[in-house]
């Protein structure tokens, strides 16, 4: 009976919640991005190294023109659980870049070839230069952007996500964003003529022009050179750089889970045995005096 009352109370609360959800019109209503399927989702998810390598190529050839990635070091490209380039490949990528170093013994700054320990160089010397070159808008750093972007799931989805482990809102949103450029609706006023209309961007007016188009980047592994494929690959790459230890985390998690479940089982049966006598008869507990 108590349970029934509790359920009734929750039902009443749910009805209240439903009634309240209607007037909640946000100022910047966000369109829900479609769900993609990712190799790294779920408890056994792993990054696909080939996809990350393609995504890196897209980033390097397109995004890196405006977006910095300050936390990426060339050595990361060769680390396990990532794009898994060979060390020689990572060193070759690093050598393509000139790194400002110094001061030398004469007290002067100088440029040298990149090494694998170096961070990926930023396209602009500072934020002000980046703004000046991009119509006053700062292109955000991409190091953790896949974890810094999301969309609201709403009730009851956010509760269910706890059980289904859905947490790829970031890459889903980023993919949708790159595919979301549309003609401006007639009744929409653009705050600035340099801006673009994007159906998934909060507020819809985005400073970034459509970055990708079919055949923009040449793939070496035969993957389709389409806008959709580029968007997915670069989003997966951004997820990796935001969460570089995801594969190790999920692998360790599975081991920990097995251990904890077995341990809990053993403790449960030990507990049953210890309490057996007490549950049978109250006087059975021996009191040592």
């Amino acid at each position: 009976m108590n349970l029934k009352r509790t359920i009734l109370a929750f039902a009443a609360a749910g009805a209240l919640a439903g009634a309240l959800a209607t007037p909640a019109a946000h100022a910047a209503e966000q369109v829900t991005p479609p769900r993609q399927s990712w190799s790294f989702s779920g408890p056994f998810g792993k990054y696909d190294p080939a996809q990350l390598q393609r995504g890196f190529k897209v980033y390097k050839e397109v995004c890196a023109a405006c977006h910095s990635m300050n936390l990426l070091r060339f050595r990361n490209l060769a680390e396990p659980g990532g794009p898994e380039f060979s060390l020689a490949q990572a060193a070759a990528v690093a050598a393509e870049y000139k790194i400002k170093d110094g001061p030398n013994e004469q007290g002067e700054m100088f440029e040298r070839d990149g090494r694998i320990a170096d961070a990926f160089p930023a396209p602009f010397p500072n934020d002000a230069a980046a703004r000046a070159a991009n119509g006053g808008v700062l292109p955000p750093d991409m190091s953790v952007i896949a974890k810094a972007r999301t969309y609201e799931r709403g009730f009851p989805w956010f509760v269910l996500d706890m059980f289904t482990q859905y947490q790829e809102q970031g890459p889903d949103y980023l993919t949708a964003l790159m595919l979301g450029y549309r003609e401006k609706p007639a009744d929409f006023t653009m705050p600035s003529p340099t801006m673009q209309y994007n159906m998934y961007f909060p507020g819809h007016a985005i400073g970034m022009p459509p970055p990708l188009s079919n055949d923009r980047v040449t793939y070496d592994d035969g993957a389709p050179q389409t806008l959709e494929q580029y968007s997915k690959d670069v989003s997966a790459f951004l997820m990796w750089i935001a969460e570089p230890h995801l594969v190790a985390r999920k692998r360790l998690g599975f081991q920990v889970m097995i251990f904890l479940i077995v341990f809990a089982g053993l403790l449960y049966f030990t507990k049953k045995k210890v309490w057996h006598a007490v549950d049978l008869e109250p006087g059975a507990v021996e009191k040592k005096a």
Partner: peptide, 27 residues
Amino acid sequence: YATIKDSFLMIVFCILFAWFVFYMPNY
């Protein structure tokens, strides 16, 4: 008596904790 009973539930609680740490750390 209390030690074994508490240990059992504490490990069950750790399963919940590990679920978030390893599978949904940013949820």
